[in-house]
Design a protein around this nucleic acid. Structure first.
Length: 311
DNA sequence: CGCCTTTGACCTGCGC
DNA sequence: GCGCAGGTCAAAGGCG
């Protein structure tokens, strides 16, 4: 399987010029602050930390991160795009909006910085939620010179036949665009929950059509609807079960489970295999995430993988 | 009827 | 300044 290689050469997102995702592929660094609790880079691989199609909430909580808190050192460089020649070897999980020049220290102010790449395109709040003065947007934008921070973003690569994977939240599609150099369109979704401005983009790799890249932007301000009906929590609540395939720090373990459950609950019905790659800022520990999500699921939920039940 | 998707138009930022 | 590409809007239509 392609996900087993440790270098990125086999990853379809690595070596190609996936222009449209420069901001994510080429410029997505994912940084962890020193405050990241329970994470011991010397003993634990990131592979054990990241799985699945989490949204930002999930991730941030699982990692004890908060996008708006100083504990988050973010990463996407403003200049990364400009230095587009750059190694661009990164892919996977992106967490966007901070100025990152000073990222090596934990300074990370609640950055009100744009995700420079193309960030402030719209800047406008979702008009759908404030309609009425939509026609005045022009003047509004004109005076709204100050750039608004873009929500943090995470991108996930998911091997799936399904474009829009269930993640426990309800989404409404609000747009679709053709992607340059790709036969596959990019779809734009917004969380349907009131006042929740979380968005996500879903697109398929043109080099490996089996791979879907989902980008989450923002944090949900509500509970995941799926938690109400999910029942896999009991399965995941078995520490031994989970421990069998992960070596998470205890506190992370719990957070991870509680936050991640909806994702598993919703997605384990699909063929689901995720590859995540990740890298931190230069001065921080560097890791690459390259995880066989399917394998994890098989370990955790053998019943959902009939063919794999008996190794 | 409400919610969702589709889709063309529009807006904006960026590179040249 | 222009053109391109990404992102969003909103009308129209479909579906349960």
């Amino acid at each position: 399987m392609a996900n087993e290689n440790n270098n990125n050469n086999n990853n379809p997102f690595y070596n190609n010029n996936h222009h449209d995702d420069d901001e994510l592929i080429n410029h997505t660094n994912f940084s962890f602050s020193q405050n990241f609790q329970g994470f011991d880079p010397s003993h634990t691989s990131f592979n054990d930390y990241l799985h699945g199609s989490m949204d930002y909430n999930t991730l941030s909580k699982a990692f004890d991160l908060s996008c708006s808190s100083p504990e988050v050192i973010s990463s996407i460089d403003d200049n990364t795009k400009k230095s587009s020649g750059g190694d661009s070897s990164l892919l996977g999980i992106s967490e966007t909006p901070n100025s990152s020049e000073s990222s090596s220290s934990n300074e990370a102010e609640p950055v009100v910085e744009e995700d420079s790449t193309k960030s402030n395109k719209k800047d406008k709040q979702p008009k759908g939620f404030q309609d009425g003065d939509e026609k005045s947007k022009k003047g509004e934008k004109a005076k709204k010179k100050e750039k608004k921070a873009r929500e943090p973003r995470f991108a996930f690569l998911t091997k799936s036949e399904i474009d829009h994977l269930e993640d426990g939240y309800r989404w409404r599609k609000y747009g679709q665009k053709a992607v340059k150099n790709s036969p596959y369109p990019r779809s734009y979704y917004r969380c349907t929950s009131q006042k929740c401005i979380v968005k996500k983009r879903v697109e398929r790799s043109y080099q490996d059509p089996s791979i879907v890249m989902t980008t989450y932007e923002g944090q949900h301000n509500h509970h995941c609807p799926a938690t109400l009906r999910g029942n896999a929590s009991t399965m995941f609540s078995s520490p031994s079960l989970f421990a069998s395939s992960t070596s998470m720090a205890p506190n992370l373990h719990q957070d991870f489970l509680s936050q991640f459950l909806p994702t598993y609950t919703q997605s384990d019905q699909h063929f689901f295999h995720q590859q995540n790659l990740l890298q931190t800022q230069p001065q921080q520990q560097q890791f690459q995430l390259h995880h066989d999500y399917n394998g994890l699921l098989q370990d955790l939920l053998p019943s959902t993988f009939p063919g794999k039940q008996d190794p």
